[in-house]
Design a protein around this nucleic acid. Structure first.
Lengths: 215, 215
DNA sequence: TAAACAATCTAGCGATTGTTAGAATGATTA
DNA sequence: TAATCATTCTAACAATCGCTAGATTGTTTA
């Protein structure tokens, strides 16, 4: 039957519609930003360092693949992921990329200034320590993102406010800073600042999407 | 720092290399075939109904993304997935596609001739019944694929041999047929044949990749 | 009601991709 | 050693994609 061939082509083409969304670096960056919560087109454009027009064009692709939903609020249009499983796919795809591409692993190593700045992501023991107050889990993302979702026991000090709010942090306990995920440089900057100021600080690679994706 | 922007672009571009692989329908089909086990270029070309040259070109993309590995055996070159997580990503991406794209769900409905031909994929109870011998789990893929990996308690009768080997199957128990996954039509054809011959048969959407991906 | 604003739509450019066909490679068989 | 076979490499073309700029839509503010 030639018919069977046509049906199959149709099915795989539909799946490829989803794959296409994840085939452009800018789109991936937008997805990662949307993993942090609802955002307007303008915010997305700024954070991804691209024009509003181009952002809009990429968001159109996401919309046509039904991976995002929009709502109008005043003059702005707010975008959000249509489902948690979109964030999960982003996590799985970048995890696979890190497993398979040496170039990516090498580039990531440059982000962690010192290899031991990185916390070994043993979630259970980290959470245990956080619960007991032995370590301070610090969310350095903008506060709206923290309010949308954050790691258990995390405290919020956005990176731009960190310098002025250093007094809020204890010097006798180690600080575990995290941000949007492994491709976000905010936690790295925070750790550098904290260490300069005499704090004991490490950098947690995972963001909320990575944390949520593993159960 | 302009520098940060450059690093980020580099990181997302690397991830996009993986995404690009999953953005073409033919490549998706090849990945699904490779989920069934090692295959030669010629076999892949036949199964995907495309020329050897085009198959080779697509396999080149998979190779350059380090998602497959090759070995020479006699005159043939055998391709296999570089890691189980590649199969897992295929499963997750087609699952997300089914969740988000109505068009895909509609197309899939046409595959199951009767809606109740589909077994509700409650794995535990299916396995329980299979263990007790209350149902026969039937793998209708080519036997090499069965030998590479199959569902627990499954029996192998390739679709092309099914008509001659009907006598091997009991008429007093229900038969659960499966194949390569939800986009493969072999199990559907098997169920149609079995029902025509008076067997009680249903169609299991999942293949070994889907089964393995969920723990 | 007019002006300002956020976002989308349309058109067009160069770059990339999917596909095909012909030449080249590398292993096996006669 | 020559001939054959499976596969890859190269070149070429049309289709698609990423991006930019200008016109357009729909909403809010003056």
């Amino acid at each position: 039957m030639k018919d069977a061939r046509k049906i199959k082509d149709l099915l795989y083409e539909q799946v490829a519609r989803i794959g296409k969304v994840f085939s452009s670096s800018k789109r991936l960056e937008l997805v990662e930003l949307l993993c942090q919560g609802e955002k307007t087109v303008e915010t997305l454009a700024q954070e991804a360092s691209i024009s509003v027009k181009l952002t809009s064009a990429h968001l159109r692709e996401l919309r046509m693949a039904h991976l995002v939903e929009t709502k109008r609020q005043g003059k702005n249009i707010h975008y959000r992921l249509a489902d948690k499983s979109v964030a999960d796919l982003w996590v799985q795809i970048h995890t696979l990329a890190e497993e398979r591409l040496i170039e990516l692993r090498l580039a990531l190593q440059k982000i962690a200034t010192q290899p031991n700045d990185l916390v070994p992501s043993d979630r259970e023991s980290l959470m245990k320590a956080a619960r007991k107050g032995e370590v301070v889990v610090l969310d350095v993302r903008p506060s709206e993102e923290y309010l949308n979702a954050h790691l258990p026991f995390a405290r919020s000090i956005p990176l731009d406010e960190l310098r002025q709010r250093l007094a809020e942090l204890p010097k006798d306990r180690s600080i575990v800073a995290y941000c949007r995920g492994p491709y976000c440089l905010m936690a790295k900057d925070a750790v550098e600042l904290l260490k300069m100021e005499g704090y004991s600080a490490v950098h947690l690679r995972e963001g909320v999407a990575e944390w949520a994706a593993s159960r």
